[in-house]
Simulated assay, not measured.
Amino acid sequence: MESFEVNPRPTPNATTTNPLPRIVNTIVVCVTMQAEAMPLVQTLNLTEEEEPSIFPKALPWKKYSGTHEGLTVHVVVPGKDLKLGVDSVGTVPVSMLTYASIVSLHPDLIINAGTAGGFRAKGAAIGDVFVATQFANHDRRIPVPVFDEYGIGTLAATPIPNLVKALELKEGKLSTGNSLDMTPQDEEIIKANDATIKDMEGAAVAYVANLLTVPLIAMKAVTDIVDGDKPTVEEFLGNMSRAAAALSATIPRVLEYVNAKSISNL
């Protein structure tokens, strides 16, 4: 594999008294599944990157780029598993992709767009699009003092009260795990996380964005009701296209709102 040059965005000097505000001009939208990404790619009229790629050739990662209302927009997807040909879901592929995209593309903002299970008890319904207010894990169980907190890994989302109000978006805490189903232990921790939605990648994206100090918005469309009476897999597969359509309708509105604004004004 050829070398991959890491060239992260310079961070402001901690001694700077009046750092310049970060203005949103370049956005990376990180999406896990191709079926979630393509309606948005088509809506924004983005073009798949051709050679030479910013990513190593051996990787299945994909990047679709273009402009929207003056913004530079990149949609990145981890692609298909090289052995099995299914979407590379879960926290490991998306965390690698997020890191590589940040150090290569220098975004002013990351948007993690995707689908999620929602809890009816928290007001979620099929097709709703939620903005995550907090990220946590529910399958990293480390019953050792302090490590237990590290395993949960709670992170606050970038505050965007003006955007949420202007676009009348729903909000809720997000809990992440590497399984589509939910064990009794998962359920207990998800409740402790006070989650409205659960997914398989959000907390991983948040971890990388937090390490590299890049603002993050996570937007999740509900495909299945976790505390409902239908099988999760059946609902997930049946509502994927509806959720993807909801994302492709909502995210362009978000892009138009954040365009040329400072992060602090969102």
Score class of each variant (00 low, 15 high):
9 R>S: 11
12 P>N: 13
15 T>R: 13
22 R>M: 08
23 I>A: 10
29 V>A: 07
37 A>G: 06
43 T>P: 04
43 T>D: 02
45 N>T: 10
45 N>I: 05
48 E>G: 10
50 E>T: 14
53 S>Y: 13
59 L>Q: 09
67 T>V: 07
68 H>Q: 07
70 G>R: 04
70 G>Y: 09
71 L>D: 01
74 H>T: 02
80 K>V: 07
81 D>V: 07
83 K>G: 02
85 G>M: 10
86 V>D: 09
88 S>A: 15
94 V>G: 01
104 S>L: 02
107 P>K: 03
109 L>E: 08
114 G>F: 07
121 A>G: 14
124 A>Q: 05
128 D>I: 09
130 F>H: 04
134 Q>E: 15
139 D>G: 01
141 R>P: 02
146 V>Y: 11
147 F>A: 08
147 F>P: 01
148 D>Y: 11
149 E>I: 03
150 Y>N: 07
151 G>I: 10
153 G>D: 07
161 P>V: 05
166 A>I: 02
169 L>F: 13
177 G>W: 01
185 Q>D: 14
188 E>G: 00
192 A>D: 13
202 G>H: 05
203 A>K: 06
204 A>E: 02
217 I>C: 02
223 T>G: 05
235 E>R: 04
237 L>M: 12
248 S>R: 09
252 P>N: 09
254 V>N: 07
254 V>T: 11
257 Y>H: 13
258 V>S: 09
261 K>R: 15
